[in-house]
Amino acid sequence: MAIPERLTDQELDELDELAQAATPGPWYVQGLDDANAMNLVAVSTVPDLGPTKRWPGFDHREIVAATLVQQPRYVDVADERWDENAFFIAAARNTVPLLVAEVRRLRRQLESLSAKADQELQ
């Protein structure tokens, strides 16, 4: 696997802006399975409460994205990685702001250490 190029400061800013513009986190994965939403796998702003939270009891405004809607068949990715995709989407929402901040912190630390090393060489 090739090592990706370094993210530019502009790319970090864009990621940060995307995260700030999105629905606030944390996000969670919810499974809904009833006569109205057969095997629905969704990304939600609230944790999954298990089988007690079903239509019409769940609030559709809590759903950010769906990775599987089988009935009616609206969302159904060919590789059948519905759960994996939902967990990735939720993890990305929850982690991208932390990763951007960590990259920036490490870059500042590296710049500081480089400047210190330059001073010691002079």
Rank of each mutant, 00 (worst) to 15 (best):
F88N: 02
I89F: 07
L18Q: 11
P26M: 03
T45I: 03
A35G: 08
D79S: 05
V43F: 01
Y74L: 10
A90E: 02
E11H: 14
D118R: 15
F87E: 02
E80S: 11
V29M: 00
R6H: 02
D9C: 10
V77A: 06
A21W: 11
A2R: 03
L18G: 07
S112L: 13
Q20T: 10
N85E: 01
V69R: 00
R108F: 08
T67P: 04
A2D: 03
L32R: 06
A22Q: 04
A65N: 07
A37I: 12
G57Y: 02
L110F: 10
A101T: 07
V41I: 13
A92Q: 09
Y28P: 01
I3E: 04
R108H: 07
Y28A: 00
A92D: 06
Q30H: 03
G31N: 03
W55L: 07
Q70A: 13
Q122G: 14
E80T: 05
L113A: 10
A115C: 06
W82I: 00
L99Q: 11
A101M: 07
L49P: 00
L18C: 09
D83N: 11
L121V: 14
L40F: 13
Q30P: 01
E11P: 12
S114V: 14
E62R: 14
I63E: 04
D16C: 15
P97Y: 13
V103A: 06
D9P: 08
D48F: 00
I3S: 04
A115D: 08
D13A: 14
Q70G: 11
D59L: 06
E80Y: 12
E84S: 11
A90R: 06
L40V: 14
N39F: 13
V100A: 08
P97F: 14
P4T: 01
A37Y: 14
Q122R: 15
A86T: 01
L49Q: 02
L113Q: 09
G25Q: 07
E80C: 11
L68W: 05
L12G: 06
P51T: 04
T8L: 11
R104P: 01
G31K: 01
D33Q: 01
A37K: 06
R81F: 00
D83H: 12
D13I: 09
L98G: 10
V69Q: 01
V46S: 02
D34Q: 04
Q20L: 14
D79Y: 02
A19R: 08
E5I: 11
Y28W: 01
K53M: 07
A22I: 04
I3V: 05
Q122D: 13
D118N: 13
V64Q: 05
H60G: 10
V75I: 15
T95L: 15
G31F: 03
D118C: 14
E11D: 09
E111T: 10
Y28N: 00
L49F: 01
R104K: 13
E84W: 08
V103C: 05
I3D: 03
D76H: 13
A65Y: 09
K116L: 15
W55E: 05
I89E: 02
E111S: 09
A19L: 12
E80R: 14
P24Q: 08
Q20I: 11
L68C: 11
L7A: 09
E14T: 14
A42I: 05
A65W: 10
W27F: 02
V77Y: 06
V41S: 03
R81H: 01
L106S: 04
R81T: 00
Q30M: 03
L99T: 08
